[in-house]
Design a protein around this nucleic acid. Structure first.
Lengths: 233, 233
DNA sequence: GCAAATTAATGATTTATTCAAG
DNA sequence: CTTGAATAAATCATTAATTTGC
C-alpha cells in the first residue's frame, strides 16, 4: 500500500468501454473515438450504418449570406491534417506578428469566414490551417486572461510551469503530483471535481503536518508544489 | 482574511473590452465577437484587411483519405444556419431514437465524417445539421455522466439540473456543493476513502484557519475560494 | 561546446458551465 | 424543466528553450 505507482498519466475520466485506437496523424496513444463495431449494431438499428464505413467528406457549407453578426464560429478540427508527419502547427514569426496585431486590434473569436480569410493571408508566410487560427485565438484569449487575473491577484507573474498535471496522489501519508505525462500516481485517481478542488488545500495541510517527505532529489519527475502556476505560493 | 466571500457565481472571465454585438440568429445578449473596426487597423497592418470585409465561404475540406483513427472532430458551429427564424434544432422521435442507439452502441464523439453521415441519415426524419449531431453527443455524454455521478454519490437522483457548480461549500462539519445558486449537499462522512479523506482534510484545514464561519442557513450562494485553480485564493 | 535532462510555451482537445429557446 | 447551443476552463501533448553534467 505504500508503493508508488508510476504510470502514464491518463485523464481523470475513464474511458468507459471505448476501444483503443491510435491516431495516425499524431502520436496520441490514448483511447479515442469509439469506432462502434458495425457488426454489433447494424442488426439492431434501422439505420444505414453501412454508409458509415467510408464517407465522403464534403460538408460544403455555403457562405452565409451577409450578416457579420452571425456568430457562425470556426471549424476547429474540421480540417484535414495536411502535414504528413502529423506534427502540429509551428507558427512563423510573421504569422504570430499578424495574429497578435489582429488580437490587439480587438479581434477575439473570428467566425469561420474571417478565419478562412486570415488563413489565406497567413499562408503566405508558412503552412497553416483554419483550425490553427481558431485555436490560436482561443488560447491567446484564455492565456491573456490568466495573465491578467494573476496580475490582479498580485500573484507572482510567474509564467511558471503549466504542465503540472492535476493529479494528486495519496499513498501512505504522502501526496505527490505528477508531471508531464509520466509520474507518480496513487491509487486514488478520482476524477471528481470536488477532489480536485481540495488539492491545494490538502497539500498545504499535509505540508503543515510534515507529511511531505519526498524531496525532489529522490525522484526526478516529482515536484511538490505549484500545482498550477496560478496557485503561486 | 478569515472572511467568507459570498458572491454571485460569475464566470472567471470578464469580457475585456470586447465590443458588444448581438447575433441575429439567436438572442444572446452578451458580448460576442468583436468585429474589429477596420479603419483602426488597416493602417498599421501590412496585411490585407480589406479582404476581411466580405468573405466567401468555401472551406472545402477534402475527405481525408482513409484512416478511421483520425480524430478529425466535428465542426460545431461551422454550419450555416439554415433555419430562417433562427430557431434551434428540434429533434424528432426517430432522430433521438437513432442517436441514442448509436450512443448505447458506444459512439461518443464522432468525427466529422461520421457526423456527416449521421446527419445525412437523420435528415430522412427531419431537418438537421451536422452541428446538431455534434452537440447532441456532447450534451448527452455530459449529462449521462452527471446522472452517473449523482447516483454514485447517493445524491437524490434529482432530475434537477445540470448546473452543478464547481464550488465547494464548507460549513460546520459538512462539505457541500452548491447547486444552482441554492442547494448544498453531502456531509463528510465515514470511511477513509482517499477522496473523502481529502475533503475532510481540506475541511479541517479551513476550520483551523477559522475560515469556516458561515452556516448553511446564512446564505444561499456561498462560495469559498478555490473555485478554480487559477483563482487560487 | 554539446547532448541529455528538464522546464517553459503553447498548440490541440475535452470537459464544465452557462444561457436561453421551447 | 428539459436540452440545444455556445463559450470558457481545464487538460493533454508536443515542441521550443533552457539548464546541467561532462
Amino acid at each position: 500500500m505504500g508503493s508508488m505507482k508510476v504510470h502514464q498519466f491518463t485523464r481523470g475520466g475513464f474511458w468507459e468501454h471505448e476501444p483503443l485506437s491510435l491516431t495516425l496523424g499524431c502520436k496520441r496513444l490514448r483511447p479515442l473515438a469509439p469506432k462502434l463495431s458495425n457488426s454489433n449494431i447494424t442488426t439492431t438499428i434501422p439505420f444505414d450504418l453501412k454508409s458509415f464505413i467510408k464517407p465522403e467528406s464534403g460538408s460544403t457549407k455555403l457562405g452565409s449570406s451577409y450578416d457579420d453578426n452571425k456568430k457562425d464560429p470556426p471549424s476547429p478540427k474540421d480540417q484535414v491534417e495536411t502535414h504528413p508527419g502529423g506534427t502540429r502547427w509551428n507558427p512563423t514569426q510573421e504569422q504570430i506578428r499578424i495574429l497578435e496585431m489582429l488580437y490587439r486590434g480587438g479581434m477575439r473569436t473570428p467566425n469561420t469566414q474571417k478565419i478562412e480569410q486570415i488563413t489565406v493571408q497567413l499562408s503566405k508566410y508558412g503552412k497553416i490551417e483554419g483550425k490553427n487560427v481558431f485555436y490560436w485565438f482561443q488560447n491567446h484569449k484564455a492565456r491573456e486572461r490568466q495573465k491578467q487575473k494573476r496580475k490582479s491577484l498580485g500573484l507572482p507573474l510567474s509564467p511558471r510551469t503549466p504542465t503540472f498535471t492535476s493529479s494528486i496522489t495519496f499513498e501512505t501519508t504522502m501526496v505527490c503530483y505528477s508531471y508531464t505525462n509520466t509520474s507518480i500516481y496513487g491509487e486514488v485517481d478520482e476524477e471528481d471535481s470536488p477532489y480536485k478542488k481540495c488539492r491545494s488545500m490538502a497539500f498545504e495541510y499535509l505540508e503543515e503536518q510534515n507529511w511531505l517527505s519526498c524531496k525532489k532529489e529522490e525522484h526526478k519527475t516529482l515536484e511538490l508544489f505549484p500545482l498550477y502556476p496560478e496557485l503561486g505560493r
